[in-house]
Design a binder for these strands. Structure first.
Lengths: 203, 203
DNA sequence: CACAAAAACGGACTATAGTCCACTTATGGC
DNA sequence: GCCATAAGTGGACTATAGTCCGTTTTTGTG
């Protein structure tokens, strides 16, 4: 990924505690907003495929270099657009009500996570697919993926003591990959796709 | 995929039973062989990534158009190179000795399949990855994938009567995707990656 | 305010997958 | 052997992701 500017993408941010990094320049912030707005509009109008990075740059009125400097690559742009929703889900996991949040037994939390993630995924399938497949191996480098993976590994350690939680968490998440769900939904529809994945993951 | 010439790619073929299709032209066969040899050589020398289709065409001494007409796209070239080994595995499944072949209980056949497929996959990880990721959704269109999927679905129907075998078979195969195994192996090594996938699939 | 360093900008440039089509060549019927 | 025709060929062309670097803008410091 490798962003340059400060991390937090979306909206507001607490008045910057004693300044960790230099703080984002005004023109940079302006352009980031322009790009995100332009990308959202184009994706809405023409669908996620069928929008080139050139088109986004043109619509935003910035140069290509700016676009790539800010978002790294196509996958990074998708990640930025998804950022806000994913933060919500992450917050619910870390400190929301059980069973998605802390407090319920691990097996129930896992089930709640799968359901919540499927909901999120099916709501933004194209965008997530773009974020995961724009460059090879992108999926496994995205911050959000690391988060889901870590969360599932912790639950597995609790639910199945003695299992090799790290790689098992990856394997459990594999059927939730956007490309896989896209194929599954296309062939069987949302309902059956959802159930099959739940059945496998919750075993 | 959409090949033009007759299906069977590799080596020998029974003297063509009463000619279904016109039969492949001599120059076409010659060029196919040249391309496959060139691709195998380049992949061996420089690794699967870092070889462009232009490079393959140049090494084979054919034009780009020929290359794409014959193999469709990069994914198709990889499929052709894997063809022979995959036929072996398919033959073993259809008519080899149990438990991989017919005769054993479904659960055992499933375990045998996963082990055999992992063996095949880990032996050709880069090439399979290229065949699955060269174009979006390629994995789910490859003939070999349809075969594995169908096989697993049949076994699931027998092993877990009443389950929705079609989509469940897809979900079971998801952790066996080349891109996923590549990430898993890079992070945990072959042994742990293998075990985690077995544990999930045979759960 | 003026200025220097740092950061950001933008568009020309490269690399590569995949398309198109005017031209060449093999093949099977006569 | 000759020819009509279907099949095959090759390379110029397009589209698109991503890089590079000389120029411009911001910022904060004296």
């Amino acid at each position: 990924m490798e962003f340059n500017g400060p991390r937090s993408a979306s909206s507001s941010e607490p008045p910057s505690p004693p300044a960790t990094r230099p703080r984002e320049r005004a023109d940079a912030a302006r352009n980031r907003a322009k790009v995100l707005a332009a990308a959202a509009k184009l994706f809405r109008d023409r669908g996620v495929d069928g929008v080139s990075m050139d088109a986004v740059a043109a619509e935003a009125g910035v140069g290509k270099g700016t676009l790539f400097r800010r978002f790294g690559d196509k996958s990074g742009l998708a990640v930025a657009l998804l950022d806000e929703r994913e933060r919500e889900l992450q917050a619910a996991i870390l400190s929301g009500p059980a069973p998605l949040g802390p407090g319920a037994p691990a097996a129930e939390r896992l089930a709640a996570f799968v359901d919540a993630y499927l909901e999120h995924l099916l709501g933004h399938l194209d965008l997530v697919r773009m974020s995961e497949t724009a460059s090879p191996g992108a999926r496994y480098r995205i911050g959000a993926y690391r988060f889901w993976c870590h969360h599932v590994a912790i639950l597995l350690t609790e639910a199945r003591p003695g299992c090799d939680a790290g790689p098992l968490a990856h394997a459990l998440l594999a059927p939730l990959a956007a490309e896989h769900m896209t194929a599954l939904v296309a062939e069987y529809g949302e309902a059956r796709a959802r159930e099959a994945v739940r059945a496998l993951v919750l075993g």
